[in-house]
């Protein structure tokens, strides 16, 4: 992971959580350069068991589940994230269809904010990005990762890899790029 760019890491993880089928998922997963060999179908079956459903997944990928209410989406923290996106200048074509605080959507926002800074050298939204990272993502993503990792009986190497990538991304973003004082 250290060899790929910070921006690419976020992008691949974003694409994993936004994949709509096996193929998209596999492409995004392979882009993370793991040495794990797994078929498209197995990867998706495991991914769905962990994060999608239709049965109760191991860890739901929505912030509200960890911040507001363990059973409900579209609650207070979802709408808080919606306000943040609007303030950042985003519009969300999936508004009221996919909860704004779905991990894939949040990683998309984070990726685009980072892109402004890294690729375009525009820093206007930097403060908002830091706020989003420290006051929102950091509140729930570690708990999401911990919950998913606890279920080691499923022992899916691919899922553990994804979760560890996400964890190390978050650690790097919060420690080296975030609050220093």
């Amino acid at each position: 992971m250290q060899t790929t760019s910070r921006l690419d890491d976020v992008k691949h993880l974003r694409d994993i959580f936004n994949a709509q089928n096996s193929k998209e998922l596999k492409v995004a997963f392979d882009a993370l350069n793991s040495s794990i060999i797994i078929s498209e179908e197995d990867l998706e079956v495991q991914f769905n068991r962990y994060f999608v459903g239709p049965m109760e997944p191991i860890a739901d990928p929505f912030a509200s589940i960890y911040i507001d209410d363990p059973d409900v989406v579209m609650s207070k923290s979802t709408l808080h994230v919606r306000e943040l996106y609007e303030t950042m200048g985003f519009t969300n074509p999936l508004k009221n269809i996919i909860p704004d605080d779905h991990l894939g959507v949040e990683l998309d926002a984070y990726y685009q904010l980072l892109y402004l800074e890294e690729a375009k050298e525009i820093t206007y939204l930097r403060e908002l990005r830091h706020y989003f990272l420290h006051e929102h993502l950091s509140l729930w993503v570690p708990r999401f990762i911990a919950r998913a990792l606890e279920q080691s009986e499923h022992d899916s190497k691919a899922m553990i890899f994804i979760l560890l990538q996400l964890k190390s991304l978050l650690i790097r973003e919060t420690t080296t790029q975030g609050v220093t004082a």
């Binding site: 974003r14 936004n18 996106y85 609007e86 950042m88 200048g89 985003f90 519009t91 969300n92 074509p93 999936l94 996919i98 894939g104 959507v105 998309d108 926002a109 990726y111 685009q112 892109y115 402004l116 690729a119 375009k120 525009i122 206007y124 939204l125």
Partner: peptide
């Protein structure tokens, strides 16, 4: 300030789009 900053035309676009 956001409108003036060039942010909107610089978003790479993804699920979220520049407003």
């Amino acid at each position: 300030g956001l409108a003036a900053s060039g942010v909107l035309s610089s978003f790479p676009g993804g699920i979220l789009q520049a407003n």
